[in-house]
């Protein structure tokens, strides 16, 4: 069923004379290169948590990764092209993961399998859980689900293949590993009182200075003062802000006076309602 569809390689951008058709194949270098690359993606044999079980089930005979040329799960990062981060990434584990990632040769791809690896998952609030592996290493494909079924994982792998297909050899941004010199390794986090990302060192230092001056430090009550702190400190990794509708009440209030007024009204109405109900929480 999963026969090689060679037709897509023969892109008829170049006119082939009728009598030669079937005898010559014309393709671009990028196409044949990407085709061979995506058809022999070797994943790293690397299971973290629950999703790893589904990953193994995908590799087993029912869903059969080898139909995609991916059955060669390599235990060594040196031999693998794809890291499937399959499960909850803890702060203790992110250090080895970054090291392993740095050891993988280019071109390398990272797939965040499941909610935990994508964005923290159900355990996100925990003190030892990283909110997504993309906080530390770049991720190519995210697969939602807790856990994603084998078919969902296969869909993710196909998405990755599509991504590889789109990378042109002519564009150095697509294939930076053919540029000059080795790629920069990702700085390995340090386990201190909490995990410390070396890229964040400057921000942490500034917070420490603030704390020494007795200014608001920490994160608990962000309304008002702490938000001011945030504005004063250049944030190293600015998260793409969500749209106004998704922004926090306080943040929205700072941005838009009209909205603030509306929110205040709503607050007041809510308070009135609560008072009317005798302070008891509505069920």
């Amino acid at each position: 069923m999963s026969q090689l569809d060679l037709r897509e390689l023969h892109s008829p951008e170049f006119p082939v004379p009728t009598d030669m058709q079937g005898n010559v194949a014309i393709t671009s270098l990028s196409k044949i290169y990407n085709w061979s690359r995506r058809s022999s993606m070797w994943p790293l044999l690397f299971g973290l948590a629950c999703c790893a079980i589904e990953m193994i089930a995908t590799a087993a005979s029912r869903y059969d990764l080898s139909r995609f040329g991916m059955e060669v799960m390599r235990a060594s990062p040196r031999q693998s092209d794809l890291m499937i981060v399959s499960g909850t990434v803890t702060k203790k584990m992110v250090v080895p993961i970054v090291r392993i990632y740095n050891q993988m040769p280019e071109p390398k791809y990272v797939m965040a399998m499941g909610a935990c690896a994508s964005g923290g998952g159900p355990f996100k609030e925990g003190y030892n859980v990283v909110s997504g592996i993309d906080q530390y290493i770049p991720v190519d494909v995210y697969i939602p689900g807790c856990p994603p079924t084998p078919q969902a994982l296969l869909y993710g792998l196909i998405s990755l293949q599509k991504k590889i297909d789109g990378q042109s050899l002519a564009n150095m941004d697509d294939v930076p590993w053919y540029g000059v010199g080795p790629s920069d390794p990702v700085p390995v986090p340090v386990l201190g009182p909490d995990i410390i990302d070396p890229r964040q060192a400057e921000l942490i230092r500034q917070q420490a200075v603030l704390a020494a001056q007795g200014k608001p430090f920490g994160v608990r009550e962000l309304s008002g003062a702490a938000l001011g702190v945030r504005a004063a400190v250049p944030v190293v990794e600015a998260k793409p802000a969500l749209e106004a509708a998704t922004a926090s009440t306080e943040a929205a209030a700072e941005l838009d006076p009209e909205k603030a007024a509306r929110l205040a009204k709503r607050e007041a109405a809510l308070a009135r309602k609560r008072a009317a109900q005798g302070g008891e929480k509505s069920e």
Binding site: S118, G132, D140, V141, Y142, P148, A152
Partner: peptide, 8 residues
Amino acid sequence: YEMADYDR
């Protein structure tokens, strides 16, 4: 379940 994304 086919929800894989390149960005989240």
